[in-house]
Write a protein that binds this DNA or RNA. Structure first.
Lengths: 326, 326
DNA sequence: TCAAAAGTGTTATCCTTACACCCATGT
DNA sequence: ACATGGGTGTAAGGATAACACTTTTGA
């Protein structure tokens, strides 16, 4: 068999936390301030680390001094041309993305700062995904017009054939009517924007032509390499998982009020939830139990504090929060 | 930075089809008849193939002469020691697993035979996953006793710490009471059996000690390398996806009766479904439409033939078949 | 006393589950 | 005629979504 090309496996971590009602991720900055943000990442070396997870934890601890708890594999990206300017001489880099959930401790921020990294709202990278205060204006003002213009252009010859046409894919990902927005389709939306050349990262990869001749705005804060795609994968996965596994509690402190829990779910799903129904949902899913104490922090009537019932596992397959409308 | 170890990426395909009411996969045999079954697989070479998917399709066509339609990435396995007898001198192999869904054509079987491969029921590899005729006897007769014996043994020192103990994990994966079986947890069940040394593959990897001193039966037909783990991943993923995306139709012919559709869903989920409710579910999910023709093949009243409404995509996010009880 | 946030009660509606029954064909 | 599988109707129960309303604190 012929000799294979040099391969390298990059491990990438999307480290998610919720603080002050905002979903945040750890971003590693460039000390010189020249390059876009990146995720904590490093190559996988099987001689040093027996598994991906061990390697990932080591890289993250190196770059951020954070000890990760819950982690989960997202996806492996292998396309050529996604990893910035690549020639056939460079090693080919395959990216394995991971999702990590963590609580934000008070001293975490300065610890990160010493490592040229910081927490940043994930909606800085995807402003159109935050519907908590209603439908974002960019959608109708800039994004959908630009996407529709793209859908009217004939696809180039080297585009792989697809089951659905461009306008069908747009309708599916962005919703037919303004009401039918599916927050789990964040990845599909990002990939459409990328293909349409409406994302700064598309410039670095193989598709400059469609872009330079127009002055279309590039949406959201860019990231290095394919890191924003990995982040979009994390967003979709976490939003979906929220509904069938009790993962929010990885982001909550030991004790919390139901409103704080609701705020966290809203931060992640990007939607506003109906207060009364949320409470009922949580309480009769038996996911939490009262600690007995109350919190008087918010101004207003003191709220009862709850904790996650982790004995839950012994009783039945643990569910999530099947949040529905509004 | 120090030199990295040699890495190789293996692409593996779980090719699923349903024929004669049985879920089947393509298995590549060993012409000499000495080695266990394997999945179609081959190394990823970025110089020859731009993406994983292109490479995978090429390998599958080489080994089985099948042209794949729907494919989807499952997971990437990177543990050392999973890929049979590995020393530090061999290249480290990372496995990227894919799920492919395909219709079975009449001539496919002999085409496969010429390539030393064949269709085989996936329940040959996981007999305990087929509940269509009630709870399989092996569970209570052999598997659960063996698992419980394992759960009583103290874990060895090099076992990574876990949130849940062995008996909790068994209860969660295999159900508390006989009624609460979650068919989507096929992967968790396989991994427990592997850890407990009740799977032939565990012998080849790092854990021979616990095995050789006992004469515990090894459950299900073994496969090469970590291929059975990839197959278990496919099982879990497909069973879950069935419920929220219309993927069954990738396995159905152009026209089919509702009973045939139900049989396919039952084959995959491994459960028996309630006939009347299944029909209603399908019909008022607007997933199918009558072709007008009828089939008289089964003996009894002729059944109306249906086809998948693929215009569905234009209307709303396409759902799956949320099959519930019975 | 008033604003703010916590917490409770009630109703209409839809979906799921289950059961009972009728229909069209081959033998 | 009767067995076999196809197909329909309907009622009970539970979950969801929406609404209005009461309670407890700080300022």
């Amino acid at each position: 068999m012929a000799r294979l090309a040099t391969l390298e496996i990059g491990l990438n971590a999307v480290i998610v936390s919720v603080a002050a009602g905002m979903p945040q991720i750890v971003q590693v900055g460039d000390p010189a301030g020249m390059k876009p943000d990146s995720l904590p990442f490093g190559p996988f070396d099987p001689l040093r680390h027996r598994t991906f997870e061990i390697g990932l934890r080591a890289w993250v601890e190196d770059q951020t001094a954070l000890r990760l708890g819950y982690i989960e594999q997202l996806y492996t990206f292998g396309d050529r041309g996604r990893h910035s300017a690549s020639s056939d001489k460079d090693p080919h880099v395959v990216s394995v993305g991971y999702l990590a959930l963590t609580r934000q401790t008070p001293d975490a921020a300065e610890m990160l700062a010493r490592h040229h990294s910081a927490w940043r709202s994930w909606y800085d990278y995807f402003p159109w995904e935050d519907w908590r205060d209603g439908r974002p204006g960019v959608l109708d003002k800039d994004m959908l017009p630009a996407l529709e213009e793209w859908s009217r252009q004939p696809p180039s010859e080297d585009t792989p054939p697809r089951a659905l046409g461009r306008s069908e894919r747009i309708r599916l990902a962005f919703g037919n009517d303004p009401a039918s927005w599916d927050e789990e389709r964040a990845l599909e939306r990002y990939e459409l924007l990328y293909e349409a050349g409406l994302i700064a990262e598309a410039l670095h990869d193989g598709r400059p032509a469609a872009l330079e001749r127009s002055s279309i705005p590039k949406f959201g804060r860019p990231m290095r390499f394919d890191h924003r795609r990995i982040l979009a994968t994390a967003l979709s996965r976490l939003r979906a998982k929220l509904k069938y596994r009790p993962v929010v509690f990885e982001l909550m402190p030991q004790a919390f009020t139901l409103t704080e829990l609701q705020t966290s779910v809203e931060a992640i799903s990007g939607r506003h939830l109906h207060k009364q129904n949320f409470r009922r949902l949580v309480e009769n899913a038996d996911l939490v139990e009262p600690t007995g104490a109350t919190s008087t922090a918010t101004g207003g009537r003191p709220a009862a504090l709850f904790r996650f019932r982790n004995t839950l596992y012994n009783e039945r397959p643990a569910p999530g929060l099947r949040v529905g409308g509004r």
